[in-house]
Amino acid sequence: MEYLMLILSAPLVSGVIRKIKNDLRMRRGPGVFQPYYDLAKLFAKDEVVSENASWVFTITPFVVLASCVLALLFVPMPGAANPFVYIGDLLAIIFLLALGRFFLALAGLDTGSAFGGMGSSREMFISSLVEPVIFISIFAVCASPSFRFSSVVAGIALVLAVIAETSRIPVDNQETHLELTMIHEAMVLEYSGRSLALLELAAHIKQVVFFSILANCVFPVGILPVKILIIAAMIALVEVSVAKMRLFRAVDFLSFAIVLSVAALVISAVGL
């Protein structure tokens, strides 16, 4: 039940982030429920599919959505008895999300559009650099029995990873539609109507997955919705206060995250 709530409120998180950003920028902007309206509109629309596309293009939205939903079910929730822990653990989440990403990248290439290819290439590039950060920080967190200094460092590394994974500034920009700067948006450029709606929903859920990992594993105090909102606010603050980086500056950004996660590991091994 808790999970169904999470899935249903996933677009809300995006809406909240957007709202906070707009408020900080002194704009009015749409309300927090705008993502739901967008989804409803997209679901009702017809689809246009490229003549070059194959069945990979068609099944991708479903695979991506399923992997994100299943990943959300695996997120450990303190307190609640969760039957899904027997199916997969924290590491399985990362593999599952990789499944969705793999198909999304293939779909980007499938239409023969150069933008899609570019998006796939960049997405795979960034995610391959993010994966070590997530793994090492999770190891660092799990290696220490309780919340300690190392958890904080690992948490910061994870935040950087989450920014990259949820296509936020400074790595990617969800709002841009200038082809040369898009990453995630470029991959889904050819999608429309219902498929696009599924993919958008999947992206919202994926964001919630990462936020709840961050919330539950790294900062195990407080109740989940509040924590997610705090993280959302934090991300929004980061988004309005920095500029998007060039793609190859993102390498520096992520290698900094890797160094940070290794530092967390060292600190936790030392026992702080």
Binding site: M124, S128, E131, I258
Partner: peptide, 15 residues
């Protein structure tokens, strides 16, 4: 971490 990086790059390579 190295293994994670490797599997990420491998996924990219097979895409």
């Amino acid at each position: 971490g190295v293994l994670a990086l490797t599997s990420g790059l491998a996924a990219a390579c097979f895409v």
